[in-house]
Structure formats: structure tokens, C-alpha cells
């Protein structure tokens, strides 16, 4: 896979050189225009990022003109609509991380075990059935998961925890975990498949069993890809919206109890977007401050994920 990418890069480099060569010799107006059109298409993605940062930042700044950054970051009460108003974002962060944590408990072991099974154990026939099924699981819209959490998983959980209220972090966390299993498993499987066969053979030749080969040789060799899949899946869980809006509740609070009703950052944004907050009002601006924080958190995790892959990649 690595080689293909490198091969493509060289080929692309050659082609790009051809393009430059032609332009330098005085390219026609038509081909200049065409070049600019394509260039602008590519730049539109950069513009999107700029627009995201700008729109979040500008409204968030007017929020921070009235509420201190420190109060926002460190406050443990989030009551932007009800008096007495308080703008401490930590309860929303708490809710977000609690659900993401529960999701990780489900998805990381299950996803990794699934990846090991697919990459090391499953015969081709079985793989051809399981992989499309996991793709379907990944393609199911998140409102559907919300419906599933609220109308199926929560009632089942209430049999175990009779006191648990309808909207709770546990149900949302479990279903979120199921939702991101395919992400963990497919990225981890890719990483494990790209571990050279010769390493497996070396392990077998030393008298290792299949499990020892998989767990002590292949998994460590694929570790960067596996860790990256974990980070990206958790980042996805942090940014996920509809599922937690439907099933986890609308009660911002500092809690570590999964049976509590909570509110995530994303669910708060939806809650306020649905209400008719006046444009420019402080409540309206809170969602951009929360959105900015969400954007920064997921961006950091995604960058961390890419960094892990690049930094730890083994050169075989």
C-alpha cells in the first residue's frame, strides 16, 4: 500500500513537471483559465476551513467579550438560559467525555478483536460476509442509532437498573460504541493487513501459536495504525450529535455516573439551534463558543491521530 502511494506520487510528480513545462513555454489563455478553475476548486476546501474558523471565532469572540474565557473553561455550572445564568462549560465537556468514554469501553476492545479476527483468523468466505455487514453498520444514519438507544437499549437497561431514568449516558454510550466499532475495526484491520507476511512466518517458525503470532507480533507491529484508529473513533464519538441529543438527555451536570441524564456539547448546540435564540444575543453566541471548543478538541485528536501514524510507522 505504501509502495503504491509512493509510486503514484512519483508519477504525479512527473505529470506535474510536464504541466509546468508547458506553462512556462507560454501556455494559451484557455489552459491558464482551466488551471485557475481547478486550482480554485482545490482551494475551496482551504476556504471552508477558514470559514469554519472565522464563523466560530467571530461569534465566540463576542461571547468572550461578556464572559471570561477562564470562567467558560473552568466553570462547573452551565445554565445559560435559566437565571441565575452561569457559563461554565465543564458540565457539557463532562457529558461529552462520559459518553465518549463509555463508547470507547465498548468499541475499542470489540473493534480490535474484530480486526484481529478479520485480519488473522477469518477465511475469505467469512470475511466476505462480515465486512459488508460492518459497512452497513457504519452507514446507518445516526438518528437511527438514537432511535435504537431510546426505544430499545434504554428499556433493556432499565430492567437491570430499575431506577435509571429514560435519558441517560449509559444507553447513548453503549450504542455509540456499537456505532464506532466498524471505524475501529476497519482501520485496525488495514493496519494489521499491511504488516508483512514475513513477520508472521518468522513467529510461526519459532514455534509460536496463531494467537501468539497475532497478539505478540502482528498487533505490536500494527500498533500505530491501531492507536490512530482508537483516537479517530473517539474523536468521532466526541463530535457525534443526533444519537446523544435523542438518548442522553438535556441536563448539563458534573457526574461520572453513567446512569445520570447528561448533556453533551453537541446536544446543547442542537437544543439551542432549535430554540429561536435571537441573532447576536448572548445565548445565541454560546453555541459558537461551545462549537469552537468542540472543533478544537476534535481537531487536536485528529491531528494526534495522523501524527501517531506518521511518527510510529515502521519502515519495513
Amino acid at each position: 500500500m505504501e509502495t503504491t502511494a509512493r509510486g503514484a506520487a512519483t508519477v504525479r510528480g512527473d505529470r506535474a513537471a510536464t504541466g509546468r513545462f508547458r506553462r512556462r513555454r507560454g501556455a494559451s489563455l484557455e489552459s491558464r483559465v482551466i488551471w485557475w478553475v481547478f486550482f480554485l476548486c482545490a482551494m475551496l476546501s482551504v476556504l471552508t476551513t477558514v470559514a469554519i474558523v472565522f464563523s466560530l471565532l467571530s461569534q465566540a469572540l463576542s461571547f468572550f467579550r461578556e464572559v471570561g474565557v477562564w470562567e467558560f473553561i473552568s466553570g462547573t455550572r452551565w445554565t445559560p438560559i435559566l437565571k441565575p445564568r452561569s457559563y461554565g462549560v465543564l458540565p457539557l465537556v463532562n457529558g461529552t467525555l462520559l459518553v465518549a468514554f463509555l463508547a470507547a469501553i465498548v468499541a475499542l476492545p470489540v473493534g480490535l478483536a474484530t480486526a484481529i479476527f478479520l485480519a488473522e483468523y477469518a477465511p475469505d468466505k467469512v470475511r466476505r460476509i462480515i465486512k459488508p455487514a460492518l459497512e452497513v453498520l457504519a452507514g446507518v444514519p445516526t438518528v437511527v442509532y438514537g432511535y435504537f438507544a431510546l426505544t430499545f437499549v434504554t428499556p433493556q437497561l432499565q430492567r437491570v437498573f430499575p431506577d435509571m431514568i429514560v435519558f441517560n449516558a449509559l444507553s447513548a454510550g453503549i450504542v455509540m460504541g456499537i456505532m464506532i466499532i466498524p471505524m475501529v475495526s476497519s482501520l485496525s484491520e488495514d493496519a494489521m493487513i499491511s504488516v508483512p507476511r514475513s513477520l508472521r512466518q518468522a513467529a510461526y517458525a519459532l514455534g509460536a501459536t496463531k494467537l501468539e503470532t497475532s497478539v505478540k507480533v502482528v498487533v505490536p507491529a500494527a500498533l500505530s495504525g491501531i492507536v490512530a484508529s482508537f483516537i479517530l473513533a473517539i474523536s468521532r464519538a466526541i463530535g457525534e450529535t443526533m444519537l446523544v441529543t435523542i438518548a442522553a438527555g438535556a441536563t448539563p451536570r458534573m457526574t461520572a455516573n453513567p446512569l445520570d441524564s447528561i448533556q453533551t456539547m453537541t446536544a446543547y448546540i442542537v437544543q439551542l439551534a432549535l430554540g429561536e435564540a435571537a441573532h447576536g444575543s448572548l445565548e445565541y453566541n454560546t453555541i459558537f463558543a461551545v462549537g469552537l471548543l468542540l472543533f478544537v478538541m476534535t481537531l487536536c485528536m485528529n491531528l494526534l491521530g495522523y501524527w501517531v501514524v506518521r511518527r510510529w510507522r515502521q519502515a519495513y
Binding site: T49, S235, T241, N302
Partner: peptide
């Protein structure tokens, strides 16, 4: 961009 949450 592919990793930015859709709500953003």
C-alpha cells in the same frame, strides 16, 4: 475537514 464533526 473529513474529521470535523458535522454539527460544526
Amino acid at each position: 475537514l473529513a474529521g470535523v464533526p458535522s454539527i460544526v
